[in-house]
Design a protein around this nucleic acid. Structure first.
Length: 419
RNA sequence: GGAGGCUUCGCCUAGUCUGGUCUAUGGCGCCGCACUGCUAAUGCGGUUUGGGUCUCAAGCCCAUCCCGGGUUCGAAUCCCGGAGCCUCCGCCA
């Protein structure tokens, strides 16, 4: 949720952000009204409670003669307080609803528009020229690395088995990613893939995109779509030591996505699947450091893709395509020769204080207790990265080139060939 | 899954049986001041977190004893529901 103080002090800034997102800017005024109503209700209830307290106290000290009258007054007071508290509860719930309805305030410089209005910040590397490129599904089948048919048999559409060199590739990528992350000061974490409703809600995934999320009704738990959820929840309700910031975690977990509404997109292969494993970077930083940390996360993502020797472009995602928690988002899209297109491999978002407010995460520093910022970035979404590697590094003879950085994790192999 | 115990303002802890100056005790830690050549020790004071009011200062007020309900004029304390932790039993990779 956004900073209420900002809404009070500079509502026009928030309205402008809403417009840039293509969202309703009148929600801001609804929020201001709800805020005012809440404060009025609290004032009323607080005053009544104070009076009731005083009367209650006088009951025990009242003389036997006075007592019945005092008690009668106290009883009447209790009724009034009860009514005022109900009104306060309603006003607070209304405020919360209005508060949650507004997405994070976008950062200055975010391109306006929707999905197609991103700005390309940089092109890196040279896309390989491949004659009659084969798709990763075909290559994966030849190498006996990816088995989507049996994935479908066992689990349904958009599931797969990684086998043989495919399974080894996953482990190699995860090892490479974790090695880089811990070298950069991230704390490696194996995170749970099932989380409670309040954690899922707090990270902002139950809003507009709730249909993307798997829910286990029997146990009232959610399957995470990214370990960002568990890593954000990790410090929920805590007051962190400001001197210990930045706190950086590299989380490995399975990720689950319903992919509702993506029917017909990427139906083949393992680019868009219901389940995949991922190494995610997550940072808790001082508010004023969030902007720089976002660039650092992007740099670490680039470093990883550079190690994989991929050609890619960095894009600045337009306001209308940002998630509700993000104030800015950079995606990296790598080149897929078989598709003749750049496809998303990583994504990094600056959530500023939006997530931490919802999850009640703060930091104590010299100036007292205050908000912290959270940011996240993909280091390696494994399935999609494997798809890209096979496609991008395919050779005319049907083999696949292995980037040097991965070789130590693959027994020194320089090429992948059919077994 | 069954039985029992526990959860107090950073940590430990008193208070819960028997509801009312609990405006929550004490210790540790931390901060400030005093004393001391410096440190230590000692003494004194401070030290939960939200919210409301406000000249967005101080002050005052409200809430907060795991969470949510209830009883009551009044709940840390009584009742109901839930969560987490521990012990034992059962089951299990």
């Amino acid at each position: 949720m956004i900073d209420l103080k900002l809404v009070r002090d500079d509502p026009e800034r928030v309205r402008a952000s809403q417009r840039l997102r293509g969202a309703d800017d009148s929600l801001v005024d609804a929020l201001l009204a709800a805020d005012e109503a809440r404060r009025a209700a609290i004032s009323t209830a607080d005053t009544l409670r104070g009076e009731q307290k005083a009367i209650s106290k006088s009951v025990s000290t009242a003389s036997p003669d006075e007592r019945p009258a005092v008690l009668a007054r106290a009883k009447a007071m209790a009724e009034e307080v009860k009514a005022a508290e109900v009104a306060q509860g309603i006003a607070e719930a209304a405020l919360r609803e209005a508060h949650l309805a507004i997405a994070n305030v976008v950062e200055d410089g975010v391109p306006p528009g929707g999905e197609d209005d991103f700005v390309t910040l940089e092109l890196v590397g040279t896309p390989p020229t491949v004659d009659a490129p084969r798709e990763h599904t075909e290559i994966g089948a030849t190498l006996k690395a990816i088995d989507t048919e049996r994935g479908a048999k066992v689990s349904g559409a958009r599931f797969y088995f990684l086998t043989g060199i495919g399974a080894q590739l996953e482990l190699a990528l995860v090892n490479l990613a974790m090695e880089q992350a811990s070298g950069a000061g991230f704390i490696p974490v194996i995170a749970p893939a099932l989380v409670k409703p309040e954690i899922m809600e707090g990270t902002g995934f139950l809003g507009a995109h709730s249909s993307e999320v798997y829910r286990l009704a029997e146990d009232d738990l959610y399957l995470v779509g990214t370990s960002e959820v568990a890593l954000a929840g990790y410090h929920s309700g805590e007051i962190l030591d400001a001197a210990a910031l930045p706190l950086r975690y590299a989380g490995f977990s399975s990720c689950f996505r319903r992919e509702a509404g993506s029917y017909g997109k990427d139906t083949k292969g393992i680019i868009r699947v219901h389940w995949f494993d991922k190494v995610e970077m997550f940072s808790y930083v001082a508010v004023e450091d969030a902007f720089d940390e976002h660039r650092r996360l992007l740099a670490w993502e680039r470093e990883f893709l550079d190690k994989l020797e991929l050609a890619y472009r960095v894009i600045d995602v337009a306001a209308g395509d940002l998630g509700s928690s993000a104030s800015r988002k950079f995606d990296i899209e790598a080149w897929f020769p078989s598709q003749g297109a750049y496809r998303e491999l990583t994504s990094t978002s600056n959530c500023t204080t939006f997530q931490s407010r919802r999850l009640n995460i703060r930091a104590r520093g010299a100036g007292g207790v205050g908000p912290v910022a959270t940011l996240n970035g993909t280091l390696c979404a494994v399935a999609r990265t494997i798809a890209c590697l096979l496609d991008h590094h395919q050779q005319p003879d049907g083999s696949v080139y292995v980037p040097a950085a991965l070789r130590p994790w693959l027994g020194g192999r320089e090429v992948l060939t059919a077994p």
